[in-house]
Design a protein around this nucleic acid. Structure first.
Lengths: 221, 221
DNA sequence: ACTAAGTGGAGGTGATTCCTCAACTTCTGC
DNA sequence: GCAGAAGTTGAGGAATCACCTCCACTTAGT
């Protein structure tokens, strides 16, 4: 396993980059549901070339998103730098929904963090404690309703970004509007009812699991 | 066109009823995405029998849901009978989400009302004014935030019931919880920001259109 | 100019859906 | 009971879609 990979021929290297560029575009608009055939067409290369470079869709996705997810870590850090816990939380929500609306692949990747052991595990380790801090701060401040927790976040994100997916490209006001309603519903207020028992990790997995197109294709034997 | 249909043979009539019963079950769990082959299996008849009785999926859906949608009209009437406008609105939301979670076919049909000229037009004519009254009453009362309007309803319903679709059958708490957050976000409050320009009918059509499986199949020439 | 590396894209595989049709079965009126 | 109309069946045709393989061809690099 310590085998050093030989360097690619120059044309192959160029094609690899074209594929990654095309994949960025295609996954941004179609999310994980995009096909490698699609990517090949956009890159102007044959399908075979894509499969030679990235043996499975999984490999391409990892190459594409592993470090792009770091943007979310930066965002969380920025949110924690704000003086107000509430402002931090709402900034996290607004900005990440915005990013996910622009790049649906990023959205699918981000949702994977919470439900998948091996994909993007490293980013998850960085991100989750930050998000926890953001929630803790808002709770301590008394601005975030007490019965909402960190496990609600994936559900909110999945739901709002799914709406974003369906809204016409030119009208982001629509899902933003919905997000604002949700945000206002998250604010602690004496008028709020009680939400009952918290969401569990299993709930999140069960729900988010089929809000994301599968990375590995359906292979029936 | 004034041709009187001959009465069905007795066994055919029995089969027709079995098909409708099975269709009820199948559409309840799979929504409009269910196939007529599915219905046939559940009914214990051949596919051909289903296609003989209901030439298209459309015909079966109309036969199934035309009057079941009246339940929503009754619900709206009940909501209007409550003394408080806010209670009426939240009852409409909670009960219809509950109904749609239990019967995904009903959900798809209800969403069709707002976006489709010819299906379920009659029910729509009854329902829409009632819903408008419910919103007007809550607005007049000052309990519903002023920048939310009737066109937000399909979007909210589509989003929350879509979440309901993904939640495990035994855990309705999850989408109910989310709905409560949304409801609390709809309440007028001095802390709320402004939502900006209202949703238009075109927005609703564009969004809800692809939140519902198409009634008519993809027929390429 | 020779060879290993790389390429293209038609097409195999398998899943899924819609719907037809021709051989068969059952009902109903006489 | 029987003729024939009405009804049934389910295998399978046709269309679509995604994944991926294969091998005759091209090209980089020494």
């Amino acid at each position: 396993m310590t085998e050093t990979a030989r360097p690619l021929r120059r044309d192959a290297q160029r094609n690899r980059e074209r594929i990654l560029l095309a994949a960025h575009d295609v996954f941004a608009t179609r999310g994980f549901a995009a096909t490698l055939d699609d990517v090949a067409h956009h890159a102007g290369v044959g399908v075979g070339t894509v499969y030679r470079r990235f043996p499975t869709k999984e490999a391409l996705i990892e190459a594409l998103f592993a470090d792009r997810l770091e943007d979310l870590v930066s965002l969380a850090e920025d949110a924690l730098a704000l003086p107000s816990g509430w402002d931090g939380l709402t900034m996290l929500l607004r900005r990440s929904v915005g990013m996910h609306a622009v790049d649906r692949g990023l959205r699918d990747a981000a949702l994977c963090i919470g439900i998948d052991k091996h994909h993007f595990a490293k980013v998850g380790e960085h991100l989750l404690p930050l998000v926890q801090d953001i929630f803790d701060r808002a709770h301590a401040e008394g601005s975030l309703r007490a019965d909402v927790g960190i496990h609600d976040l994936p559900i909110i994100m999945a739901t709002v970004t799914d709406l974003a997916r369906h809204t016409p490209p030119g009208r982001p006001e629509i899902f933003r509007r919905f997000l604002e309603v949700v945000i206002d519903g998250l604010r602690a207020s004496p008028e709020n009812g009680d939400l009952g028992p918290a969401i569990t990790q299993e709930d999140v997995e069960a729900i988010v699991h089929d809000c994301v197109p599968p990375i590995e294709p359906r292979r029936r034997t």
